[in-house]
Design a binder for these strands. Structure first.
Lengths: 182, 182
DNA sequence: ACCATAACTGTCCGATCGGTCAGTTCTGAC
DNA sequence: GTCAGAACTGACCGATCGGACAGTTATGGT
């Protein structure tokens, strides 16, 4: 058939993202993705140099968004820093739900992935959430928020409508950080 | 050599737990475990009926401990319920760190595992953390605590000594749940 | 109409995995 | 010492995986 290149690429990426999010990176074979996308495994490997490259391409948008957030809050301090970081982080997890689930499934794979520096960015996020503080209580609370938002965003339990979920996640996170609402 | 059965079994379980926690269930082969434990793959399969059974045996203690916790707080209400649940859950994650990491790595595997009912127990835990409330804000906050403690316990970053970590995890969790300290 | 090239595929390959099995080695009771 | 059975092993098997490659089909510019 030979459709336009970008169409098939997009279809493959979509299928890969969904399957990876459900069954994990290792739990999804190239054949699974190809079947779901409606092409042959060989065609998949024509568009993407390998399974790893496919994973990389899927995660880069989320990574860039996180990097942009960290860049945006880099010059803030105190209350503004924490508030902006929390809101930005929550929005990010809701926007990239499936990517988060994928990251969640194969966190160890990512740590030693050369093209992705998720761990580095996570450190920066942790730092901002702690308000640049090095005190153990603040660091622990920041870790808690990191995990809380991460998992709450990754879950697909319809615990609440997205708008309510977002608002409550932000409020809960700020409480965790002992941040009195302004 | 043919050492006593229990000794080799214990060695295999120990090796499996460590390797699973680091590389995940799928990321660890039976040969990896056997080499680490100092025996052959065939010997490993002599002691354990299969890879799944090995996983089950590793997670049962943690599962039982969680079930016991839920049983203990079943008759409590209000503040006592939430406090006991939080403290118990935090202690549990710190006691079973590696098991948590393992669970963390392969959460989807577990959901469809017949011998383990982790998801069912997680629901009970969520319910107790929410103080048996069905209101969305309380449910979201409970989800946040579930994830926060989960990840903070699973991480091996030495963010703080265990005693400080424990105390701060409990305090942070109670703040997340909007629980004014008694 | 023609053709260079992009898009695609069927088929094969080596590696790795979980698991089986017949056979060997060790141990403890007598 | 002997011997039954537990403990252990090397060799092998079928399945599955990621990937390579030669060959085929469709497309767009001329």
């Amino acid at each position: 058939m030979a459709r336009s290149a970008s169409a098939m690429r997009g279809q493959i990426l979509e299928s890969a993202l969904r399957l990876f999010a459900v069954h994990g990176f290792r739990g999804t074979s190239l054949q699974d993705i190809a079947s779901d996308a409606g092409c042959s495994k060989a065609s998949l490997l024509y568009h993407f140099a390998g399974k790893e490259k496919l994973l990389t391409e899927l995660l880069i948008p989320a990574q860039d968004a996180l990097a942009a957030l960290l860049d945006r809050v880099a010059e803030l301090k105190g209350d503004r820093l924490v508030e902006e970081t929390v809101v930005g982080y929550v929005d990010l997890t809701l926007r990239f739900r499936r990517e988060i689930r994928l990251l969640f499934e194969d966190i160890t794979e990512m740590s030693c992935h050369q093209d992705l520096n998720v761990m580095e960015l996570a450190d920066g996020l942790l730092d901002a959430l702690a308000g640049r503080s090095q005190h153990p209580p603040a660091r622990v609370a920041a870790w808690m928020v990191l995990g809380a938002v991460f998992i709450t965003g990754a879950t697909d339990d319809e615990v609440a409508p997205d708008e309510v979920l977002r608002a409550e996640m932000i409020r809960s996170a700020l409480r965790t950080l002992d941040h009195t609402p302004s």
